[in-house]
Amino acid sequence: MRNPDRPDEPDEPDATSKTDDQVSALDEPDQLGALDEPDQVSALDEPDEVGESGEVHDADDEAARMLGVLRGYEPASADTVGLADAAVRAGRRRVRIRRTAATVAAAAAVVVTLFAVPLLDRDPSGRPSRPPEPVAGGFDARRHEFQVGSAGGFAPVSYESRRDVQRITLRPERPGGTLRADGLIEMYPRGGLPEGSGGRVPSGRPAPPVHGRPAYVLATPVLRAGAVELAWQWKPGAWGFVSLKGPGADATRAQRVALSVLPAGTLNSAPTSTPSSPPKTPGSPTPP
């Protein structure tokens, strides 16, 4: 634009106007902006061939490894299950056999003990080294567990066998003699006592031992009132009683009668199993 005040100066270009070069320059696309073109964006979005191909190969290797572990697995067949059941049954059978063998061995040991103990309890002649004792707590009511000899002028005339007591009746060996008393022997198992004792263990004046065991002359009779009675311990916890009543009865005769009482089998004779007979009453005839 020409300045009117300075005609000689050339006209200045209008700052607001653009030359053709400037317009063309402005109209040309920006080189940096060209990166935003679709081709450039697609190039950025393309995957990294090296990175992604490596990851794919790693996934394939992992899958192959896992399938390799399963390649040798075979599901249990019917034959395999049958073999397992057979093994279980065989194991149980072996356990039953071992238990049966242990039971048989224990029973055999008991049998050997039962046979060996009686043999050890005999002397060289084969006879028992000590008198056999009835089972504690009760007698065999079918057997006579004791044998009584003639002593003190008395002889046995009857035997009553019960589980709680063995009772023997005595009469004078010589009827019509000076001895006119009668006698009674009662033998009790361990823990047993006559009713008249009130459950109290015998006591009284000490008498000479009977077969090495304590004996007492009772101050108060427990079998028959007015009788002379002696009690002795025929084995630990078991007591025998002799009761003599009538003319000629005294503690000395009672002591002799007690000494004649022995467990059956002591004199090499087995206990008899004859039927028990009730005690005889005074004055009854003596059996032949």
Rank of each mutant, 00 (worst) to 15 (best):
R163I: 10
S150A: 11
E55L: 12
I97D: 03
V23H: 09
M66I: 15
Q255F: 07
P134H: 02
S129F: 07
R253Y: 06
G68P: 05
V23S: 08
G212H: 09
R96H: 11
D20R: 14
L259C: 09
P275D: 05
V117M: 06
A155I: 00
E62C: 08
S17F: 00
D30P: 00
L262K: 11
P221H: 06
G72N: 13
P128R: 05
G183Q: 07
P263H: 02
E160H: 04
G91N: 11
R122D: 02
D21T: 02
R171Q: 07
D79Q: 15
E49K: 00
A90K: 08
V165A: 12
A59F: 07
R6W: 12
V228T: 14
A86W: 06
G204Q: 01
R171Y: 02
P194K: 07
D36S: 06
D85E: 15
D250M: 14
P271M: 06
V210T: 10
P10D: 09
V228L: 03
P279H: 00
R92G: 12
G82N: 12
S284E: 15
D45K: 10
T266S: 14
E46G: 01
Q22P: 03
R130D: 12
D21P: 00
D5Q: 12
S77T: 15
A141W: 01
G198V: 13
E52D: 05
E55Y: 07
D250S: 13
R180G: 10
L267P: 06
R71I: 12
Q233T: 10
Q147G: 05
D20F: 11
A102I: 15
R93W: 08
L26D: 09
G149Y: 04
A102Q: 14
D123E: 11
L170G: 03
G246W: 06
A141P: 06
R99Q: 14
G149I: 02
R200V: 13
I97V: 15
A25E: 12
S161H: 04
R142F: 03
A225Q: 14
I168T: 09
A225K: 11
R122H: 04
A231W: 03
D250Y: 11
V157I: 11
W234L: 06
T281N: 03
D39E: 14
R162K: 11
F241V: 04
S125C: 01
S269Y: 01
R96T: 11
V257E: 06
A101K: 08
I185Q: 01
A15V: 07
D45R: 12
Q233S: 14
A108M: 15
R65S: 13
A108C: 13
G72S: 15
A207P: 02
R213V: 03
G226F: 06
T274Y: 11
S129V: 00
L83T: 12
V201S: 08
D85S: 13
P282G: 02
S17W: 02
R6Q: 11
K245T: 05
L32Q: 04
A59N: 10
R163F: 03
V112M: 12
A215Y: 01
V217H: 07
E133V: 10
V135M: 08
P285A: 10
W239V: 01
P189S: 10
E186M: 10
R98L: 15
R93T: 06
R130I: 04
R253E: 08
R93M: 08
R213H: 13
E9F: 10
P285V: 03
D20A: 13
P214E: 02
G152L: 04
P134C: 01
E173G: 01
E195F: 11
A254N: 09
